Simulated assay, not measured.
Amino acid sequence: MADQGLRVRLRATDTADRTERHRRRVGRLLDDHPVRTPDGSPHPVWDFLFRYYSHKPALLMRWHPGYGVDIDTPTEHADYPHYVPTADGDAVTVDPAYLQTRSRTVGFVDGLLRATADRPPRLNCFGMHEWAMVYRAPSSDIRHGTPLRLSPADTDAAVEASDLRCTHFDAFRFFTEPAGPRNLMPLTRQTQVDSEQPGCVHAGMDLYKWAYKLSPLIGSDLVVDALEVAFGLRELDMRASPYDFASLGLAPIAVETPAGRAEYVRLQVTLTDHAALIRRRLIDSCAGLIDRQPPC
């Protein structure tokens, strides 16, 4: 059944122009945040955003205008998944049936992001979740293949001198076994909606995940805006981590010291504000999709 909402039509030339601008923007971002190091190995900082978040660069290069936009043919979008011809046959558009199949995902993302946005940001975790992931861990289990900035004993001591206040289950689940009980609150997948809060760097990075999971129902400009924020949050996360990334140009933030914690919070506030804007746009996009879901 055709979507009954207000529709927009793009000429093929407009689509080509927007696609080219999008590809140039993504290309610049990937050049600035390479997936691989010069020797061809996975970049220990940026590869995460394409490995843990499984949206491949080739898919990121595709520009989508979002649901309810008809694109005049000829256009490469005719060959993309989840596009169908319009009634007149002269254009293609995102399939209303695809929106129906993604209705549960749209509803979950909408609920999670609204619950997160309604809470005040907590700015007192100081990025210690990464430290909890190596707490009392054998050297063979150290993540990222990157040396620790402090000795293992001093790294463990920093954790023991801090309160672990993680609110994000997908970070908490990587805590070492002895670190888990040190967290101030137990976290489970079932309580994710109840615990997410907007000051969390991982909740901010996840906005990129939710954006691309809703593609092509939402426009690619929002997906890339979310990725830009995720890059900033990932940089903060790794600079505050126990790892030594100085050789990659990432100066450490010594969160085991008062000065380092103050620097972390200052940068966290700025990035939290940026993430809040993306979160609100995603909420608005979800609301629009919910309103336009075709009847069963």
Rank of each mutant, 00 (worst) to 15 (best):
F175T: 05
H168I: 00
A171P: 04
A179D: 05
H168L: 01
E177V: 14
P178Y: 01
D170P: 04
L187T: 12
G180S: 15
H168P: 00
G180P: 00
R149H: 09
A157T: 10
A153I: 07
T146W: 06
N183M: 08
D170Q: 04
M185V: 15
E160D: 14
R173F: 08
F175Q: 03
E177W: 02
L187V: 14
A171H: 04
L148R: 02
R182T: 14
L148C: 07
R173Y: 05
T176C: 00
L164V: 11
T155K: 03
P152T: 03
D154F: 08
A161N: 13
C166R: 01
C166I: 09
P147Q: 08
F169S: 03
C166G: 06
F174I: 12
R182S: 14
P178E: 01
P186I: 15
N183D: 09
P181T: 13
T176G: 00
P147E: 07
P186L: 11
P181L: 05
C166L: 04
R173E: 13
A153E: 14
D154W: 06
R173Q: 15
A157K: 14
T167G: 04
S162H: 13
F174D: 13
A158F: 02
N183E: 10
P152G: 03
A179I: 11
R173C: 14
L150F: 01
L150V: 06
A157N: 09
F172M: 01
N183I: 06
D154P: 07
T155M: 13
D156S: 13
N183A: 07
D154S: 14
A157C: 03
S162A: 15
C166W: 00
M185K: 12
T167F: 05
A171K: 01
A157G: 00
D156N: 11
A171F: 01
P186Q: 09
T188E: 09
N183R: 03
G180M: 15
T146P: 04
M185R: 15
P181H: 08
A158C: 05
R165M: 12
V159E: 02
A161Q: 13
T155A: 10
R149S: 07
T167E: 03
A153W: 00
A153L: 11
D163Y: 08
T146Q: 13
P147V: 14
T155D: 00
R182E: 14
F174V: 10
F169L: 03
D170K: 04
L150Y: 02
L184E: 15
A171I: 02
L148Y: 01
S151C: 06
H168F: 04
A179W: 01
L184W: 09
L164D: 02
P147L: 13
P152H: 03
T176S: 06
A158Q: 04
A161W: 02
F175H: 09
T188F: 11
A161G: 14
E177L: 07
D163C: 08
